[in-house]
Structures are given as C-alpha cells and as structure tokens.
Nucleic acid binder design. Structure first.
Lengths: 242, 242
DNA sequence: ACCTGAACACCGTTCAAGT
DNA sequence: ACCTGAACACCGTTCAAGT
C-alpha cells in the first residue's frame, strides 16, 4: 500500500553520511515520522543495515543529523543580522521585522517538514550545546538585544519567543500531519468545517466560549494567526521589558 | 536493568478499561514514552494481549485515553470560572489570575507527566472535537473574555496562550526527561552548569548573544520563567486587543 | 576502510480457541 | 461476554564474514 514508486537510487556514488541523511530527510518528508526505518533506508540506498551503521551510530543520531541539516538550511536564509556593525542601513530592517523573519523561517521549515517540531524540542533539551539550540537562540536573541531590552532580561525574552514559535509551529505541523493522514481527498476547509460544527454543537452550559469561537476557528488563516501571535509577544516584550 | 520491582497486581478485580488506562499512566510516568508496551502492560495486569485488545482498540486509543484522564484531573482542580454568575466574590479572582492558574495547572501536569506534552499536541490536532481540546480552550477562553478582549479577537488571543503554554511546558518536560535519562546522580544544577559553560565557550564572532546569556541560563528558575512568559503574553493581549 | 546479510530481541496486533 | 496465548509481520541493532 505505502510502496512508493521510488528510483532505487542510481548507486555508484559511494555511501556517505550526507547521502544517508539526505535519504532520511526525504523519507521523513514523504512518509512521516513512522516512515523512517532502516528497512526503507537500505532499500532506498540499495545497501544493507550494516553499511548504514558504519556511517551513523544509531537512529537517534540519524534523526539529529536530519534535524541539523534542515534547520541550518532554514536559518541560513535569514540575514541573521550583520556580524560587524558595518553598513548603516538606516531603519531598513527593524528588530521587529528581524524577529518576524526568523519566526517565519522556522514556521515554514516546520510546515515543510512536520517531523521537525518533535525533533527540535527533543534536540533543544537533549543537546542544548549542539548546533541547533545556539543557532535558534542567537537568531532571535540578537534582535531582542537590538529591541532595547536590557541585558538582564535577554534570556527571558528570547526564551518566550522560542517557546511560542515552537509551540505554535509545532501545533500547526501536527494539524497538517493529521489532515494528511485522512487522505489527499479531504482538504483543510472540510476539516475546519467539521471541527467548527462539532464545537458549535457543544453543551452551551459547559462550553459557552468554545461554541462562540467556532466560526473564528473555521475562518482563520494559520500563517496570519501565527504572525499575530508573534506580534502579541513582541508587544508584551517591549511593553514590560524596557 | 529496567526490570522494576512491581507488584504483579493483586488481580481479582476484573480487567476494565479504567484499570488498563490507570496502568498505562503509571507505566508512562515511571518508564517514559518508550515504557508503555503491551508486553509490560500484560505483565503488570497479569493477563494476555488479547484481553487488553478487548477493552481498547489499539495503542493510539490507549494513549489518548491516558491523556484524557490526566488532563481532566489537572483542569478539574482549577475553579474554571463559575458556571452561573453567582457569588460576587468581588475582585477576588481577576481574569489574569485565572489565566495564570490554568497555565500553571497545565505546566504542572506536564511536569509530572512529561509524556503528556507530545500526546497533547497530537490530541489537539487529531481529535480537536474530543474532550481535551475544548476543555483547554474553554479554560483559557472564558478568562480571555473576562479580560475585555473584543469577541472577534477571542480565538486569536486564546490560541496564542495555548500555544505558548504548551510550547514552554513541553520544552520544560523534554528538559526534565533528558535530565532523567542521564541517571539519578546528575542534578539540574550540574546540567545547567555544563550547558552554560558550553555556551560561554562558543565563538564570540558567531554567537555573541548566546555567550552573553549563558549565566542567565544557569541561574534561571523554570517555573518563574514560565510565569514571566505568561505575563508577557497577557500584557501583549491587553495592550493590543482592547 | 567499507560493505553484506543473516540473526537476535523486541514490538503492535490478530485470532482460533477456551470459559 | 470476556479472556488466553501462540503466531505474524515488522522494528532497531549486532556481528561474523567478505572485499
């Protein structure tokens, strides 16, 4: 059933860690978290499990490497603030715009690779000194500094941004994955309609609020909603922290 | 190694869905997400896999039921706003306090049951009309209404709260789980110290910000930080949405 | 140094058979 | 109606053996 039509890989290029990671990302993207198995990987790479284990310690390390690769690509696209205080571009890019850009970069990376959300929060906690956590922290943090937040609040302000962005993007990705699991014939509008109707049918005594927002759930745009949330957090930061 | 000393269950009470769910929660709490297997469950309940499958459709449904049970218990402890507009307690409980209480209830539930974070975001997307999503939405939403947010912004404001709380609490739970995985002899302070040192040793050109907040990472209190984030979001909501 | 592929222990799930 | 337990297909990982 899930036997996708896939070139069995041209082979000839020798196996390498990069080729394995690349294949892992493709499997995760097309078949979801459960789609990455050593069986599928060996088939795709026309090799045996032992060959993969020679380049990679275990599945966890492979997932970590896949996460690194995708995040690096996503955050590399952001200008990420100049390293030196050169080029006075005037007000060209405000810190707010910078934060929105970083947030949107992560949002879109997670949207394109839904498995990333789970992996990211695991990675941030399992190896907080690995390449991913500092990269994300640095991307948001520089702009937080530029915002005029006093240094003693940097960690708090940046943490809130990271948590909101990962929480919202992760929920969005989970939604998309669930939708996809229902098959390609059901679209977003249909699902939202069904959920909105269910919310509208809740008990008026127990769920007055949830009933009242059913229509807003149906009409909302994920990306717009996400950015509205970023702006809300930004407002909170500038209002309370200097 | 992981052969925990466990009463093989007094048995005699017949098997039931509730007893299975209860055992599942205990397994998840003591052994983590990977600790819930039908093998461990049959041993704990002194029965065979077929018996469990008679009460529960599959592992996914079992995880969902475990999530329901824990969330219901956590949010039931919150007053959750009076059903009827009785008892004018004056300014006793402000909407802000109500939101903090709901947020803290979820934070602590996730802290006590780290597997909950992953399950919750899955549950919210897989069955948004199930018992969990409306319950969480309603708990936050009523207070958002009481805050004076105009109705057309209810969904946005409440979503941001939910996303921040689940994102932050989830990250916190992942941190705790990773710490526990290192063994009981390493404590929080030790881990934070190691990470802070690693951050402090980063390249000054590439990671000036992350280096600068290394000390704040070491000193921070998780719960305090979480509540500061809730207040930040709350400030954003009241400042921008009426 | 790099790869092969059989084998191991473990997993979720099914199902004929019992009571 | 409720439970038993062997069996199936699948998983991550290991390792002796090859080149």
């Amino acid at each position: 059933m899930a036997t996708s039509t896939r070139r069995p890989e041209r082979r000839e290029q020798p196996l390498s860690r990069e080729r394995i990671v690349e294949a892992a990302v493709e499997l995760l993207d097309t078949a979801g978290e459960g789609g990455l198995t050593f069986r599928a990987l060996t088939e795709r790479l026309a090799t045996g499990p032992g060959a993969i284990y020679w380049h990679v310690a275990n599945k966890g390390e492979l997932l970590g490497a896949a996460t690194d690769a995708v995040v690096a690509a996503a955050l590399a696209l952001e200008p990420a603030a100049p390293t030196a205080p050169t080029a006075p571009t005037g007000h060209a890019g405000s810190p707010q715009e910078g934060i929105r850009a970083v947030a949107l970069g992560l949002f879109e990376a997670i949207d394109a690779h839904p498995w990333l959300a789970t992996q990211l929060s695991g990675q941030l906690s399992r190896s907080p000194s690995g390449p991913v956590a500092p990269r994300i922290f640095e991307s948001f943090g520089r702009q937080v500094g530029a915002l005029g937040v006093p240094e003693r609040d940097w960690f708090t302000a940046t943490s809130v941004l990271v948590h909101y962005v990962l929480g919202a993007a992760g929920q969005n990705a989970a939604n998309a994955a669930s939708a996809r699991a229902l098959g390609p014939e059901v679209d977003r509008a249909e699902i939202l309609g069904t959920v909105a109707r269910a919310w509208g049918d809740l008990d008026p005594d127990d769920y007055p609020f949830t009933r009242a927002v059913a229509d807003q759930l149906r009409e909302h745009d994920d990306r717009e909603q996400f950015l509205a949330g970023v702006d809300l957090v930004l407002t909170g930061i500038t209002a309370r922290l200097r």
